[in-house]
């Protein structure tokens, strides 16, 4: 299989397979969660659960000073990693074209130079994340094989995308194919790893926030 065939496969059957596993897998995971149900809270509410749910959904994106002061680097790195990933994923013209083909609408892209720099930062940030995971005793203690798999499948698309864009290591076409394949790997792995948090984080925040909202406490 030459580079063009590989690319064609990655843009065709490969993407389809990955997309099916991703969408079906994620739906399965979400339904597995939702199906377990939740009893209504009978205690007299002091505030609005919906308000609290929404507030936490957003507010939890900001760190609390109490914990930020203890682990500023890890937390900042977490932001860099996530924001970097999102910027590269959602603000790069070719990626927007992909979303456009699925959603039917697009949005303006950022200059490629910015994406390139953000990509590089994201890679460094992911490497830093690994260093933290290996060096921080709590993270090392908590880490399972799944954490390293998830790290690797997250790094690969960013790394291969960066290498492809900068024409490094492999011929562009091959690297582009590898990039797409790595994205597909990410899509396949995501539903069966902690990467489900890309969706379930919202449910988790909602549930905690809803409860807090009902109690009129902060969360």
């Amino acid at each position: 299989m030459d580079a063009n065939e590989l690319l064609a496969w990655a843009r065709g059957p490969g993407f389809d397979i990955a997309l099916i596993i991703f969408v079906a897998g994620m739906l399965l995971r979400l339904l597995e969660v939702i199906s377990l149900g939740k009893k209504p809270d009978l205690s007299a509410p002091r505030g609005s659960g919906v308000e609290g749910g929404l507030r936490t959904l957003l507010a939890r994106s900001l760190p609390r000073k109490a914990v930020f002061d203890r682990e500023p680097l890890r937390i900042i790195n977490g932001y860099v990693l996530h924001l970097g990933f999102f910027i590269v994923l959602f603000m790069y013209g070719p990626h927007i074209a992909l979303f456009q083909s699925i959603l039917g609408f697009g949005w303006p892209a950022l200059p490629s130079g910015v994406i390139d720099a953000v990509g590089a930062i994201t890679i460094l940030s992911l490497v830093a994340a690994l260093v933290f995971r290996l060096n921080n005793k709590v993270m090392r203690f908590l880490s399972t094989g799944g954490d390293y798999v998830a790290w690797a499948v997250t790094l690969l698309p960013v790394l291969t995308g960066y290498l492809a864009y900068n024409h490094l290591l492999l011929p562009y076409t091959t690297m582009l194919a590898v990039h797409l394949l790595s994205v597909e790997l990410l899509m396949v792995v995501a539903p069966f790893s902690k990467l489900t948090h890309m969706f379930s984080f919202a449910m988790a925040r909602w549930h905690q926030g809803y409860k807090a909202g009902q109690r009129g406490v902060e969360s």
């Binding site: 843009r11 065709g12 389809d16 997309l19 099916i20 074209a97 992909l98 083909s101 699925i102």
Partner: peptide, 16 residues
């Protein structure tokens, strides 16, 4: 576009 799969993504999403 090169970054867009050449299959019918919309249909795939629906199937999936």
């Amino acid at each position: 576009a090169l970054s867009v799969p050449h299959t019918k993504v919309g249909e795939t999403v629906l199937t999936a």
